[in-house]
Write a protein that binds this DNA or RNA. Structure first.
Length: 447
RNA sequence: GCCGGGGUGGCCGAGCGGUCUAAGGCGGCGGGCUGCAGACCCGUUAUUCCCGGGUUCGAAUCCCGGCCCCGGCUCCA
């Protein structure tokens, strides 16, 4: 998985979390294409003669990696994760229907192609002109196709490859069909939302729509389509030939998943994102500010009184304003960038104003506000590492109290030694006129 | 060639007809925080939104022309 895939998954995660925040019951289906050319090629490379017996290890590995990355990026689990190899029967049935109704035909080699000319608006969705497509087709059509734009629903068996039996011979399903069959099985048609990277618009999504029209008689496969802008590197699309692919695994060695999520969130999902480590570094920095505000709230929560405070009202109304503006931004075509800036300005309120009046707010008010702050952050995939173990908190507070006494006694050299030691350990203290606040480097905490 | 998406400060990136002398972040600079520090705070950092026309009382935002970049048309998130 590279940084482009991760952007798409991250965006959909935020989208789903937003819908759930709004109280909607969301069913999310993420398909796994666990057999295709790429996988088989890989298997051939790795296993050679043993390929037929072991090819499935490849998708298994990819899927494991996928879940590992989702975990690190705080991407919530989908409701269903259908795999192609577990839905072969459904696909065969779909193909039979399509052939029966004349939307598809069996080629001499046993492949089955979808006949694009049977769909009147074919090309409209992606804004492609069929005639020009044919004229500009760069790849010579496969022998059994009636029309170069026809696409495979079923690929006939080739020596060495795994296969499934069908009325028209052995083979395996084609990509465009898989998604339609699996998604509609778990969600019904039309889907409310469907999408992916912008590069899937044509031919993949166009073909999906064609299949859905033919198979289910619907106007469109989905009510709403979402296409996430592509990620580029130094202005160019990531590709194997340019050798500029940035795997998420590499990024996560140096940076937290949260920093990457924040980085993604700072650009609107439809815009292209030119990936850079400098940008990611900025996000990392930004994230620290967000965490500092959180930790100060946590500190206030611990020390605040149970009685209502005179500034409770102000605090609560600030929080309400945050929630309202934050959600408003997301409701405007999921403007995560604006949402981040709302969160940031609230964080600034905390670190510039609130922390100077600890005696004027109540525990309950601070806690409620902190919870909201976290909850909103989590829609964006950040602020997941908010808990600090109690024993560690007590330990740090004890050290800080001791240091404060040293400062009162003006024994600054020892106080400074303590501070620099804490800094080394990833604990950052800030002295203010009312008290000393601290925050901790999340990478120092194991979750 | 055909079809899309873009070009906003030192950088990243919002804004998409008035509230824009353009959000927010990062960086820089100046100052504050009754020592110092700072993953703290405050102030400051684009009279200007690729260029040229036009529409409008009013444009970064709409229209026309040009330049440049990226992507799709082939597996691709």
């Amino acid at each position: 998985m590279h940084v482009g895939h991760a952007r798409t998954y991250s965006f959909f995660d935020t989208f789903v979390k937003l819908l759930r925040y709004l109280g909607l019951d969301v069913v999310l289906v993420v398909n796994f294409t666990d057999i295709d050319d790429k996988i088989l090629n890989r298997a051939r490379e790795e296993f050679g003669q043993d390929m037929l017996r072991r090819w499935h290890e490849i998708p298994e590995r990819y899927i494991r990696e996928f879940f590992d990355i989702c975990n690190k990026l705080n991407i919530q689990n989908a409701t269903y994760y259908p795999k192609v190899t577990e839905h072969i029967n459904d696909m065969v049935k779909a193909i039979e229907e399509l052939v029966e109704r004349g939307f598809a035909y069996v080629a001499p080699d046993g492949s089955v192609y979808f006949d694009v000319t049977k769909i009147q608006d074919y090309g409209k969705f992606s804004g492609q002109d069929i005639d020009k497509l044919i004229a500009g087709a760069r790849v010579e059509p496969e022998p059994g196709k009636r029309n170069p734009l026809d696409f495979a629903l079923w690929k006939s068996w080739k020596p060495g490859e795994p296969w499934w039996d069908t009325p028209w011979g052995p083979g395996r399903p084609g990509w465009h069909l898989e998604c339609v069959v699996m998604a509609s099985k778990y969600l019904g048609v039309p889907l409310d939302f469907h999408g992916g990277g912008l590069d899937l618009v044509f031919p993949h999504h166009e073909n999906e729509i064609a299949i859905a029209k033919a198979l289910y008689g619907v106007e469109n496969l989905a009510l709403y389509w979402i296409h996430v802008g592509l990620v580029t590197v130094r202005g160019e699309k990531m590709s194997k030939s340019l050798k500029n692919i940035i795997p998420v695994e590499d990024v996560l060695k140096k940076h937290s998943g949260e920093a990457l999520r924040l980085y993604y969130a700072m650009t609107h999902y439809r815009k292209p994102l030119d990936f850079s480590f400098e940008g990611l570094e900025q996000a990392e920095q930004h994230l620290k500010t967000l965490y500092a505000a959180h930790d100060y709230l946590l500190e206030l929560e611990r020390s605040a009184k149970d009685e209502p405070g005179e500034k409770d009202q102000e605090l609560v109304s600030k929080a309400q304003e945050l929630e309202q503006k934050f959600i408003e931004a997301l409701l405007d075509d999921v403007d995560t960038s604006r949402a981040v800036s709302e969160l940031t300005s609230f964080a600034r309120y905390v670190t510039s104003t609130l922390i100077y009046m600890p005696e004027k707010v109540s525990k309950a008010a601070v806690q409620a506000v902190r919870m909201l702050y976290i909850e909103l952050g989590r829609i964006l995939g950040i602020l997941y590492r908010t808990d600090i173990p109690d024993w560690l908190v007590s330990l740090i507070e004890t050290i800080i109290e001791t240091r404060s006494r040293l400062r009162q006694l003006k024994i600054f050299d020892i106080a400074d030694q303590v501070r620099s030691k804490l800094t080394e350990l990833g604990i950052y203290v800030t002295d203010t006129r009312v008290r000393t606040y601290w925050t901790i480097d999340r990478s120092k905490l194991v979750y």
